[in-house]
Amino acid sequence: MTKIEYLQRLNAELSKNKIPDAEDIIGEYEQHFAFKLADGFSEEEIAAKLGTPEVIAAQFALEMSQANTARGGKTFIIIGLWFAAIIEAMIYVLFFAWGVVLFAASLASAATGAALIGRFNIAGLIPYMPYVSALIFGICFLSFAVFLAAGAYYYLANIKQMIKVTIRWHKNMISGNMLPSLPVNPQFSAKTKRKLRTVLSWSVAVFGATFVLGIVVAQIHSGALEFWHAWSWFL
């Protein structure tokens, strides 16, 4: 079989099997002939080594039919995935909102701490206390703010990872490929993990210590167990 004969027969077989983009395929085999001819092989030799046009076309047809059957059954999967996606999106918006709440709480706590330490009594919101107590409670609020911020960061990283896992799952369902599913926990580097752990444990420790210390100091200072009554906070 000469090159022309081979390519013509391949073309005929491809169109018989209704393979799309037959010109591209023919182009590939033409290139194959060109390389082999340059290496000194005869057209007959090359054609014999390629495999018969019938077999080649059948392989293209096989790939195509597999892709088609896969696609046919997919309509339902895709509809189902859309429903799943809507629900997932709602859940993630809700989760995300909680992360925002955590950050807002952290900001509020930081502002209170700064006001206590800096002696800004905005609109008289902060009740009377001696500056020693204000200082200790200020540090208490600041450490709580740090704890909340670190917690919110970790929480949002968790959600981000969950969204990634969901997207990977969707992709796998649609393409039929089995990419390995992702781990559920956020993937921090060892360094970030260590830092996060240090920040969280220190902020908790400082918060606890200053909270207790603040109350004790206030009690001593006011001379009453219920120092808030002694200082008439709720009158």
Partner: peptide, 17 residues
């Protein structure tokens, strides 16, 4: 394999992205 067998595979992998 025969020389022509690789092209259908390349096409399949390309179609799968």
């Amino acid at each position: 394999i025969t020389g022509g067998e690789v092209y259908p595979i390349l096409r399949k992998l390309k179609n799968e992205g």
